[in-house]
Design a protein around this nucleic acid. Structure first.
Lengths: 140, 140
DNA sequence: AGCAATAGTTTCCATTGATATACTTAGTTT
DNA sequence: AAACTAAGTATATCAATGGAAACTATTGCT
């Protein structure tokens, strides 16, 4: 028990070292690639957009807006642009009337969603624990 | 190739269904446990705090502020409170003068950091790809 | 008395983000 | 001819967030 947990901690430290060791933490945040990429990919709305696109093969603007409940036109279109620029999603416009635009995950986006899902799965599984902690903490 | 990717997509859809299937997406966002837990645990500053606490066994306020470069007193103390309330970190105050306060990961926090690291590792490995995409996109 | 150190808190201001509404394009329906 | 469609854009207003700097508390040191 003890040693397994200890080993895991050592592995964690090594991973962090490998990732951030060569980066000076005093650099401006936008020079840290992890901070930079994360600022797009783990933004609250972006995560929801990506998950819904992981669920449906393609979604159009207004459908997305329906599922990503609470998002505004402006923010949705902003986020879609950035996600497209970073290569997570693809935008296909059909010049019909009225115009039809379909959004879908790229292979790259798909691979990210798979990683992301491991995290959201953890959250799903552990949210009761978090709620319990929160309640305990609130008692004083 | 095709079938492996297809299988993976099917698995993704099933995971999402399992996680969100019983939740009405039209609920207010704070009623979705995943959104709720994520809003704390994947906040930009919180992630950095947790990673540094995964690297050092304990850290005091001012050390943390040094490593989590760019964070303000206010936000750091806010985030620490929330992370403590949710059970990720532990706060130990020693009534010396001047007071000493040590922050560290709980076992729960440690397990989260391990999950989180898989994601940041992905970002670390894929940030060149994202940069390349971004540049390509910027060219028109 | 005044300063240093730690771990914050408080206050004010600026930037960001969000909401709501109207507008666009162009062809089809009423 | 007005209305409706889709996928946004544009604009104005409002709320929430974030950062900077000053402030607090306590006690020992000079």
């Amino acid at each position: 028990m003890e040693t397994i947990a200890e080993n895991q901690k050592v592995r964690t430290v090594k991973k962090i070292e490998k990732m951030f060791g060569h980066i000076d933490y005093k650099n401006p945040p936008e020079l840290c690639p992890v901070r930079d990429v994360m600022s797009v990919a783990s933004d609250q709305w972006s995560v929801l957009i990506l998950l819904w696109l992981g669920y449906f093969p393609v979604l159009r603007f207004n459908k997305l807006k329906k599922y990503v409940y609470g998002i505004s036109n402006k923010v949705l279109s902003q986020r879609l642009k950035v996600l497209e620029a970073d290569g997570y999603i693809e935008r296909k416009a059909y010049p019909e009337v009225p115009i039809r635009v379909e959004y879908s995950l790229t292979e790259f986006g798909q691979s990210y969603v798979e990683k992301l899902l491991e995290l959201t799965e953890w959250m799903h599984d552990n949210s009761p624990k978090v709620m319990a902690n929160r309640e305990k903490y609130g008692l004083f």
